[in-house]
């Protein structure tokens, strides 16, 4: 068994929280630059130029790209031959501590509160943590700070199997259309299809972790992603919703088999500040 210390996990997560909020990843930057050269609306091009300039300033000054530094969403791939040692913590407590430390030391906004009293928890915890057990002796930590504006525009629906692929397409187009200017377009669309009620939402979230502009490894899903992206960009919402030809940068689908009675679909929308980063310990 390989051993790693909890303190290492805390420090890695703290750093991950900060870096993800300061540095927009290459895939997103490339996609935004491409959109800027192709955008048809002059106002849309101005907005895309602001977005790119903002990313440059954030990286240079090491300040958050967006004041909404997100809910801390953490996906773990935990190797079966890895043992965590030292201290009384468990792995989740170490992640929480890392989030606490990262958001405090990085001057990141703490955005988590009680649902009714709206009292802020003060340290951006609890983090939302999901774990896969995998072969090997490593720990992969994928971090995705998720803003509230785009999260609020997300939707889930249990379709009837008879609605089929056309029903799925209609649902995603309607969701993006009614979201309009709210989720800070150009957006990234994460879609889950299949599984069960809770699993399909997780698939949609996981789809957002994929590199922006990447193609699905399944060729049929890759075609569907491409078709939906073109369709969404015909909606005319454009950068910041002011009208234009770039409403989405990318559509990512994750699919699983589902119950014979069901056709679950989830749409998780991400803003143009599609922050995501992973590290392996």
């Amino acid at each position: 068994m390989r051993q790693i210390q909890y303190s290492e996990v805390i420090d890695v997560v703290a750093q991950l929280c900060q870096e993800t909020n300061f540095f927009l990843p290459e895939d997103v930057l490339n996609s935004l630059s491409k959109a800027q050269s192709e955008e048809k609306s002059p106002l849309g091009r101005t907005v895309l130029a602001q977005i790119l300039e903002n990313a440059r300033i954030a990286a240079e000054e090491k300040v958050p790209i967006c004041q909404d530094c997100g809910a801390a969403i953490v996906f773990l791939e935990l190797g079966e031959e890895l043992e965590l040692t030292d201290g009384n913590l468990n792995l989740y407590a170490a992640i929480e501590e890392g989030v606490r430390k990262g958001y405090k030391e990085g001057y990141l906004r703490k955005s988590i509160c009680h649902p009714f009293t709206r009292k802020n928890t003060g340290d951006n915890t609890p983090a939302m943590i999901y774990t896969d057990i995998v072969p090997g002796n490593k720990l992969k930590i994928r971090f995705c700070p998720k803003g509230g504006g785009s999260e609020n525009m997300s939707a889930i629906k249990m379709l009837s199997p008879s609605e089929g692929i056309e029903g799925v397409k209609k649902f995603v187009i309607e969701t993006v259309k009614s979201a309009g200017s709210n989720p800070c377009p150009p957006i990234v669309v994460g879609m889950g299809i299949g599984g069960t009620f809770e699993r399909v939402a997780l698939l949609a979230k996981k789809a957002l972790l994929r590199s922006v502009g990447s193609q699905n490894t399944d060729s049929e899903l890759a075609v569907l992603e491409d078709e939906l992206l073109k369709e969404i960009n015909c909606l005319g919402i454009g950068p910041a919703g002011l009208g234009g030809s770039t409403t989405a940068l990318s559509v990512h689908i994750e699919m699983l088999p589902c119950h014979i009675a069901s056709l679950p679909v989830a749409i998780n929308i991400n803003c143009h500040a599609a922050r995501h980063k992973e590290v392996m310990i």
Partner: peptide, 11 residues
């Protein structure tokens, strides 16, 4: 803005 740039799509 949307009216100006929307196209009738495939769906």
């Amino acid at each position: 803005g949307v009216k100006k740039y929307q196209k009738i799509g495939m769906l």
